[in-house]
Amino acid sequence: RHRTIFTDEQLEALENLFQETKYPDVGTREQLARKVHLREEKVEVWFKNRRAKWRR
């Protein structure tokens, strides 16, 4: 597996949602994934990693 490289637009959308909710539900993740052309799984893992970074 290779590392996903997120575009600035994707990161902006992910960060904006993170400010709203640290734990978006699957529907919200799917909606964002469609909007920025990512797989929902990638969005889910990004949030998991972003929460870990936020806790540190």
Rank of each mutant, 00 (worst) to 15 (best):
R1N: 15
R1C: 15
R1G: 14
R1E: 06
R1D: 11
H2N: 14
R3T: 14
R3Y: 15
R3G: 13
R3W: 04
T4C: 06
T4H: 12
I5L: 10
I5P: 12
I5R: 08
I5W: 11
F6V: 13
F6H: 08
F6C: 04
F6E: 08
T7N: 06
T7M: 02
T7A: 05
D8F: 10
D8G: 08
D8T: 10
E9D: 13
E9C: 06
E9M: 10
E9V: 08
E9Y: 06
Q10W: 01
Q10R: 01
Q10D: 07
L11C: 05
L11H: 10
L11S: 10
E12G: 10
A13G: 08
A13Y: 03
A13W: 06
A13S: 07
L14A: 01
L14N: 05
L14W: 01
L14K: 01
E15H: 06
E15A: 04
N16L: 09
N16M: 09
L17S: 06
L17E: 04
L17C: 08
L17M: 07
L17I: 15
F18P: 05
F18H: 00
Q19M: 14
E20V: 10
E20L: 12
E20H: 11
T21Q: 14
T21P: 03
T21N: 11
T21K: 04
K22T: 04
K22W: 06
Y23F: 09
Y23S: 02
Y23K: 04
Y23R: 06
P24C: 03
P24I: 02
D25C: 02
D25G: 07
D25V: 05
V26T: 12
V26W: 05
G27T: 14
G27F: 15
T28N: 04
T28W: 03
T28H: 13
T28E: 10
T28G: 04
T28C: 08
R29E: 03
R29P: 04
R29V: 12
R29G: 01
E30G: 13
E30W: 07
Q31E: 15
Q31V: 12
Q31Y: 09
L32F: 14
L32R: 00
L32G: 01
A33V: 03
A33H: 03
A33S: 07
A33F: 01
R34L: 05
R34Y: 06
R34G: 05
K35D: 06
K35H: 04
K35T: 06
V36P: 00
H37T: 06
H37Q: 09
H37L: 07
H37P: 00
L38C: 09
L38P: 01
L38D: 01
R39I: 05
R39C: 15
R39H: 11
R39S: 15
E40F: 15
E40S: 12
E41H: 08
E41I: 01
E41K: 09
E41R: 05
E41F: 01
E41Y: 06
V43A: 03
V43I: 12
V43C: 04
E44V: 09
E44Y: 08
E44Q: 09
V45M: 13
V45D: 15
V45Q: 13
V45N: 13
W46S: 00
W46V: 00
W46T: 00
W46G: 00
F47E: 02
K48T: 08
K48D: 02
K48W: 02
K48L: 04
N49Y: 11
R50K: 07
R50S: 03
R50Y: 05
R50M: 04
R51K: 01
R51N: 00
R51H: 02
R51T: 01
A52I: 05
A52D: 09
K53E: 15
K53D: 13
K53A: 14
K53F: 06
R55V: 10
R55T: 04
R55I: 13
R55H: 15
R55F: 12
R55C: 06
